[in-house]
Design a protein around this nucleic acid. Structure first.
Length: 271
DNA sequence: AAAAGCCCCTGGATGC
DNA sequence: TGCATCCAGGGGCTTT
C-alpha cells in the first residue's frame, strides 16, 4: 500500500510520541511475511529510542536491537494510549509506556523483524541492496545518470526495483515518469542525460509534494494518528486509463510491466 | 550480473 | 442474491 511518502508520513505521526517508551508487552496475531526473529518477550523492557525510515522500511531503534517494520501492500500503523482489543487484521502490538503501536495488515505482506543491529545479517538481507534515499543530499544527479546508464531494463521497472533509488512505488513511478515526459517502457540506458535530469527532479518533486500533502493518492491510507490523506494529491496518470490527459487531452493508456500496472500519456511521453 | 517471473494473502469491485 | 474472476500500494526468491 504505502510508498515512501505514506511511510514517512506514518513515521512522523508517531515517532516523537513513542520515543523513550519502554516495551511492556508484545502481542502477535497471524503470521506476517517473515517471523519476528526472536521471542516476543525478548523485547519487553527495551526502550524505543527513535524511529527512522529506510526506503519503505521503518526502523525502530531500541537499546538492544532494532525492529524493522514494513507495511507491505495493505499495512497501516496506529499509535495510541488506549487501544481497542485487536481485530482480525491486527497482527502486531508493541505495548509501550508511551502507548501502543499496532500494525493492521489484511493481506499480511507486511513484516516486523527484530535485528540485533543494522549491520547484522538479518537487517542486511532486507536493507543491504537498497538504493539511495531520494529526499536526501545523497541523491546526486551524476550518480543517478551513471547508475541508469548501466541498466537495460525498462525505466519504470528500474525505479520500482529500488536498487538505484528507494521509495518510488507503483503510483509514484508512473507519476514521476509522466512529469519527466519519459515513456515507462524505455530502456534505462537509452535515456539521455538531460532527460534523466528531468526525471531526477521529478522523483524528488513528486515524493516531496506527496509527503507535504500528508501521503495522498492512496485510496485508504491513514497515518498512525488515524488521519487520512484521502486523494489530496491528484494523480496525473495513475489509475486514469481511458481518461483524458490533464495536460494535452490525449487518452491515458494502461499497460502491464512485470505484473504491475503502468499508466502514461503517449503524447506527453513519446519516448 | 542483470532481467523476468513467481509467489505470498485478503478483500473489494465487477460481471454473469 | 450468489458465485467466479480479476485486481490491488511490495519485494524477496528462483529461474533464465
Amino acid at each position: 500500500m504505502p510508498e515512501l511518502p505514506e511511510v514517512e508520513v506514518t513515521r512522523l505521526s508517531f515517532a516523537d510520541r513513542i520515543a523513550g517508551g519502554q516495551v511492556r508487552a508484545v502481542h502477535m496475531g497471524k503470521p506476517l511475511r517473515w517471523p519476528l526473529g526472536c521471542e516476543p518477550d525478548q523485547l519487553v523492557g527495551l526502550h524505543v529510542m527513535r524511529v527512522r525510515r529506510r526506503g519503505k522500511y521503518l526502523l525502530l531503534d531500541m537499546d538492544g536491537g532494532l525492529l524493522l517494520v514494513h507495511l507491505g501492500m495493505s499495512g497501516s500503523l496506529a499509535f495510541g494510549g488506549r487501544m481497542p482489543p485487536p481485530g482480525i487484521h491486527d497482527h502486531f502490538d508493541l505495548v509501550t509506556t508511551r502507548g501502543t503501536l499496532r500494525l493492521n495488515d489484511p493481506r499480511r505482506f507486511g513484516a516486523v523483524v527484530f535485528a540485533h543491529s543494522e549491520t547484522d545479517a538479518v537487517a542486511q538481507k532486507l536493507l543491504g541492496h537498497l538504493g539511495v534515499e531520494p529526499l536526501d543530499e545523497g541523491f546526486v544527479l551524476a550518480d543517478f545518470q551513471h547508475a541508469l546508464a548501466q541498466r537495460k531494463a525498462p525505466i519504470k521497472q528500474v525505479l520500482l526495483a529500488g536498487e538505484v533509488v528507494v521509495g518510488v512505488g507503483n503510483i509514484y513511478a508512473s507519476e514521476a515518469l509522466f512529469q519527466a515526459g519519459i515513456r515507462p517502457t524505455t530502456a534505462s540506458h537509452k535515456i539521455s542525460k538531460p532527460r534523466l535530469a528531468k526525471l531526477h527532479t521529478a522523483v524528488r518533486d513528486v515524493l516531496t509534494r506527496a509527503v507535504q500533502k500528508g501521503g495522498s493518492t492512496l485510496r485508504d491510507f491513514s497515518d498512525a494518528k488515524g488521519e487520512s490523506g484521502y486523494f489530496q494529491l491528484e494523480a496525473m496518470v495513475y489509475g486514469r486509463e481511458g481518461e483524458p490527459c490533464r495536460v494535452c487531452g490525449g487518452i491515458i493508456r494502461g499497460i502491464r510491466q512485470g505484473q504491475r500496472s503502468t499508466f502514461f500519456c503517449a503524447v506527453c511521453q513519446k519516448s
